[in-house]
Design a binder for these strands. Structure first.
Length: 289
DNA sequence: AATTCGGGGTT
DNA sequence: AACCCAGAATT
C-alpha cells in the first residue's frame, strides 16, 4: 500500500512551490504556518509575497510585527502572523538565523505545534518522523481503521502513521506527503473519489461497504456571521489598510458596522485584539503592533 | 477536554 | 446554511 502511495504521489502530486527542493527551510516553515486551517489556493499568493519580502527569519525579525500582519492580509487567524514574526525573532536570536531541524527545538518556537514541528523536520530537512494532519487522519481512519471519518486527534495517530513509514528517510517523507496529498485531493471529506484512489484495493472502509460509522465529531463551529470573530476581522481590516493610527472611535465603529447590534460586541472585539497583541492603543488611537 | 480564533470555497 | 479547511494556544 505504501508503495502504491509513493508511486501515485510521484505521478499525480500537485506542483506546489514549497515542495521545490530548492525551497529553503524558512520558506517551508512559512508555508506551514499559512497552511494551518487554510486552503492551498488561498495561501499561494500570500506565501510568494512573504518569502520575497522576508527571505530569512532575521529579515522578518527586524521588521515591525504589524507589517507581518499587513502582508498576512486576509488569510485568517491573524495571530498566526504575529506568532510567525515571534518565531522569526526566536530563530534569529537562539538559532543563528537557521531554522532548527530538531522536533523539540521546533516545538519550543511560538506558533509551532505537533503538526508543524514534524512537517518542517520532514519536508524541509528530510528527517524521519510521522507527520499527521487532518487529511492524514482521515486517510488513516478510512484505509486502516475502516471508519468513515477520523475521531478526535490523539497520540495514537502518530503511531498509526509511523507504522506505515518505510525505513529510509526519503521514502518516509514521500509517504507522509502522499497521505496528506491523497486526503486533500482524492480521499476528501465530503465526496471521496475512490475511482481515482491508488490504495482503494486496501481500503478497509471501502472493503466494508462504506459503513456510516463516523465517530462523534468536534462540536459544530459557531456561525461566523454576526460573531465576535467577524467584528475582530472588521477592525483588523481597518488597521491593515490604515497607514498609521486610527481613532479608537473609528475602530469601534468598524466593529459595529454590519454587526448584529450587540452593544458590547465592538468593545469585546477591540479588547480581545489588544489582549492578543494585534492592536496597540496609544493616546486615543489604535494601530498595528 | 473544551474553547477560541478568519474567512473563503464547496456542497 | 452547513460543512470543511496542511492547527495551536489557552483555560
Amino acid at each position: 500500500m505504501t508503495r502504491a502511495l509513493i508511486e501515485w504521489y510521484a505521478r499525480a502530486a500537485r506542483d506546489l512551490p514549497w515542495r521545490d527542493p530548492e525551497t529553503t527551510p524558512w520558506a517551508v516553515l512559512v508555508s506551514e504556518f499559512m497552511l494551518q486551517q487554510t486552503q492551498v489556493d488561498r495561501v499561494l499568493p500570500r506565501w510568494a509575497a512573504w518569502v520575497e519580502r522576508w527571505p530569512t527569519p532575521s529579515a522578518l525579525a527586524i521588521d515591525e510585527p504589524g507589517e507581518a500582519v499587513r502582508v498576512w492580509d486576509r488569510l485568517g487567524y491573524p495571530r498566526r502572523a504575529l506568532w510567525l514574526h515571534r518565531a522569526a525573532v526566536e530563530i534569529a536570536d537562539r538559532h543563528g538565523d537557521r531554522v532548527p531541524a530538531d522536533i523539540d527545538e521546533l516545538l519550543a518556537l511560538t506558533g509551532i505545534g505537533p503538526y508543524t514541528a514534524r512537517a518542517v523536520a520532514v519536508f524541509a530537512f528530510g528527517e524521519r518522523h510521522p507527520v499527521v494532519d487532518t487529511n492524514t487522519r482521515r486517510v488513516l481512519a478510512r484505509a486502516v481503521h475502516g471508519r468513515a471519518a477520523a475521531g478526535m486527534p490523539a497520540a495514537a495517530d502518530l503511531d498509526d502513521m509511523a507504522a506505515l513509514l518505510p525505513e529510509d528517510r526519503a521514502g518516509a517523507a514521500a509517504v507522509n506527503a502522499a497521505a496528506m496529498e491523497l486526503g486533500a485531493v482524492v480521499c476528501t471529506a465530503r465526496a471521496p473519489r475512490c475511482g481515482e484512489c491508488p490504495i482503494a484495493r486496501w481500503c478497509e472502509w471501502r472493503g466494508a461497504g462504506y459503513p456510516d460509522n463516523a465517530p462523534a465529531k468536534r462540536p459544530r463551529q459557531a456561525r461566523f456571521a454576526g460573531s465576535d470573530r467577524q467584528a475582530r476581522g472588521r477592525i483588523m481590516a481597518l488597521l491593515r489598510r490604515s497607514e498609521g493610527a486610527v481613532a479608537v472611535e473609528r475602530a469601534l465603529e468598524a466593529a459595529a458596522d454590519g454587526g448584529v447590534g450587540d452593544p458590547e460586541q465592538p468593545r469585546r472585539a477591540y479588547d480581545s485584539l489588544v489582549a492578543d497583541g494585534l492592536l496597540v492603543e496609544r493616546e486615543g488611537s489604535a494601530r498595528l503592533p
